[in-house]
C-alpha cells in the first residue's frame, strides 16, 4: 500500500482515543480493522490528515450480556462475533450475516463496529442493524450518546457520528422466543459484496407470522427496512408460499438501488422481491 502521507496516533484507552480524535480535527479518520479504510487509502480515494488507530483500546473489545440486550464492542472482530455463544444464542441474525462477510482473512481483521461505522450500503451488517433496531453507542470527549440504527445510517459511507465521535459499541436488543432468522445474500463470488441482501427476522405463533422485520442490503445509499413487506406478512401462515411471495413483492417499494457492473436498478428490484421471499420462507422455517 502506498497511501498519501498521514499522521498516526495509537491511543491506549477510549478516553485517549476521543481526545486524540478531537485534537486531530475534522480530517482525521478512525482506523479500526482497516478492511475498508486501507483499500481507500491505497487507491488514494481518502486523504485523512491523521489516523487514530483504536486497535489497542481494550474497552472496545468483546461481547457482554447486559440484560435486555447484548453489547458488542466496536473492535470485536467478525470472527469473534461469529464464534460468540452469546451472539449465537441471543442474536443469531448477527451471526448469520457475519458469516457471509468477505472471507476468513477479512473476518479476522475486520471489526463489527468498523463495518457499521463505514456505512457501506453493500455491507451486510447495516441491514441487520436496522432490522434489529440496534442502538449505536457513540463516545466523544463530551460523553456518550445512543443513536438508533434507523437514524445512524445517513447516506453512502455517511453516519450520524459527529467529527469527534467514535462508535464504541452496539446494543443489540434480545428478541425473546418465537423468532426465526435468515440472511439471504446474493453475490457473484464468495468474496464479493452483495448485489442485494435481505436480513429477515420473523416471529411466529401457532404457524402464523405475527411480526417480521426485514432489512435490505444495497437497495439504496443506506440500509432500508422493507416496511410494506413487514406489514403484508402479518397474519400469514408460515407455510403459505404463494401468500409470502405476494407479500415479498412489496420489497422494492421505496427503494433506490444503485447501478453498477453487477446489476442495474431493475434487476436489483427484482432480486429484492425474490430474495425477500426466500428469506421469509427460511426465517419462518428456522
Amino acid at each position: 500500500m502506498i497511501p498519501a502521507p498521514f499522521d498516526y496516533v495509537r491511543p491506549g484507552s477510549l478516553d485517549e482515543a476521543v481526545t486524540a480524535l478531537a485534537d486531530a480535527g475534522e480530517d482525521a479518520k478512525v482506523l479500526a480493522g482497516g478492511q475498508s479504510l486501507l483499500p481507500l487509502l491505497r487507491l488514494r480515494l481518502a486523504y485523512p490528515s491523521t489516523l487514530v488507530d483504536i486497535g489497542r483500546v481494550p474497552e472496545l473489545k468483546g461481547v457482554r450480556d447486559e440484560g435486555d440486550h447484548v453489547f458488542i464492542g466496536a473492535m470485536t472482530t467478525h470472527d469473534e462475533v461469529l464464534h460468540s455463544d452469546l451472539v449465537r444464542a441471543e442474536c443469531p441474525l448477527v451471526a448469520l450475516a457475519t458469516a457471509t462477510v468477505a472471507d476468513p482473512a477479512v473476518r479476522h481483521r475486520g471489526t463489527f463496529g468498523g463495518a457499521l461505522a463505514h456505512a457501506d450500503p453493500a455491507g451486510d451488517l447495516p441491514a441487520v442493524a436496522v432490522a434489529l433496531d440496534m442502538r449505536m453507542v457513540a463516545r466523544s470527549r463530551d460523553g456518550e450518546r445512543e443513536i438508533p440504527a434507523a437514524g445512524f445510517f445517513v447516506d453512502y459511507l455517511e453516519t450520524a457520528l459527529g467529527p469527534g465521535e467514535i462508535l464504541a459499541g452496539v446494543r443489540v436488543p434480545k428478541l425473546g422466543p418465537g423468532w426465526g432468522f435468515h440472511y439471504e445474500k446474493f453475490h457473484r463470488t464468495a468474496q464479493a459484496w452483495a448485489i442485494v441482501g435481505v436480513a429477515a427476522a420473523v416471529r411466529r405463533s401457532n404457524g402464523t407470522i405475527e411480526e417480521a422485520r426485514i432489512g435490505l442490503t444495497n437497495m439504496a445509499t443506506r440500509p432500508l427496512r422493507a416496511a410494506a413487506v413487514e406489514q403484508a406478512v402479518r397474519g400469514l401462515a408460515v407455510t403459505d408460499t404463494a401468500a409470502l411471495r405476494g407479500a415479498a413483492a412489496h420489497a422494492a417499494e421505496n427503494t433506490d438501488p444503485p447501478s453498477d457492473l453487477h446489476g442495474g436498478p431493475d434487476y436489483r428490484r427484482h432480486l429484492a422481491q425474490v430474495l425477500t421471499h426466500r428469506a421469509l420462507m427460511a426465517a419462518a422455517a428456522a
Partner: peptide, 24 residues
C-alpha cells in the same frame, strides 16, 4: 475488463474485476 464510454477502465481492482476463488 470494462471500459466506460470515455475509455476509462472501470475494473481496476479485484472488487470490480471478479476472479473465481476455490469457494466459487
Amino acid at each position: 475488463a470494462v471500459y466506460d464510454p470515455e475509455g476509462n477502465l472501470l475494473t481496476t481492482t479485484m472488487a470490480d474485476y471478479l476472479l473465481p476463488s476455490a469457494a466459487d
